[in-house]
């Protein structure tokens, strides 16, 4: 019997190893799998490369993972946002690397990685410093830059509802990077607000088909990151 449901975030992240490449869903707090990230902090894997649009806020979620020196390198499009102090501080000290990628290129690199496409050409960043050293090629008189697909060992994703096959639906703009990240990792680990019965998600409405998902854990009341940041909480909880 196929049953991808596991009983705790700790069980979901148990196999993550030192040096792993990890995609973490979310755009700001929307879609950030904060309970899985906290379980990963407890689990202890280090020297990670993290692919995520942002670098987290305050001292919870991704920001806390970075603060605990588990992240060697971030691949992201917007590392400084309101209330993100941890990454800028460590970056300026030279304690964490950064690969800056335009947001659409980041999404497409992940999509390509998941689709078995090793590289592609895009117009984004041509004639800018972010295209320096990259292969350029003209098609129909327009210059494009070559970018590589991205794959990961693990993806951590948050969704609204999942069934035991790993079929997923999302909530509003929390969908963001989730569906493409699910396709691009060896093992996609998902936290779902609700586990539902097979068939409860209309097959016409499944956003991520279960084939892309390895494990699902139910987290009924996920943390509201901006609330935690406003309350100046830090993980591990004091």
């Amino acid at each position: 019997m196929i049953n991808k449901i596991v009983s705790s975030p700790a069980e979901a992240v148990a196999n993550i190893f030192d040096g792993a490449m990890i995609m973490i869903g979310g755009f700001g707090e929307a879609g950030s799998p904060i309970e899985l990230i906290h379980a990963l902090i407890d689990q202890g894997a280090k020297n990670l490369t993290v692919i995520s649009n942002n670098t987290g806020s305050g001292h919870v979620g991704i920001a806390s993972l970075i603060e605990h020196r588990r992240v060697a390198k971030m691949i992201c499009s917007f590392p400084r946002t309101l209330n993100s102090t941890v990454f800028p501080e460590l970056y300026n000290k030279g304690e964490v690397d950064l690969e800056l990628v335009p947001q659409g290129t980041l999404a497409e690199r992940i999509r390509a990685g998941g689709a078995g496409i090793p590289a592609f050409y895009t117009p984004s960043s041509v004639n800018t410093s972010l295209a320096n050293g990259k292969e350029l090629r003209d098609f129909d008189g327009i210059t494009y830059v070559m970018e590589y697909g991205l794959k990961a060992d693990f993806s951590l994703v948050k969704c609204e509802a999942a069934d035991r096959y790993g079929n997923l639906i999302y909530n509003k703009t929390a969908r963001n990077f989730g569906p493409v990240m699910c396709t691009a990792a060896d093992q996609t680990l998902v936290q779902a607000k609700r586990i539902v019965e097979l068939g409860d998600i209309d097959p016409e409405c499944v956003v991520t088909p279960g084939i892309f998902v390895k494990k699902v854990v139910e987290v009924t009341n996920p943390s509201d990151e901006s609330k935690l940041v406003a309350e100046e909480r830090s993980y591990p909880w004091k």
Partner: peptide
């Protein structure tokens, strides 16, 4: 110097 580079979707928007 010292500024944290951040680009978001700006380059994709102007290109597309």
């Amino acid at each position: 110097p010292g500024a944290i580079p951040a680009v978001g979707g700006a380059m994709d928007l102007v290109a597309g």
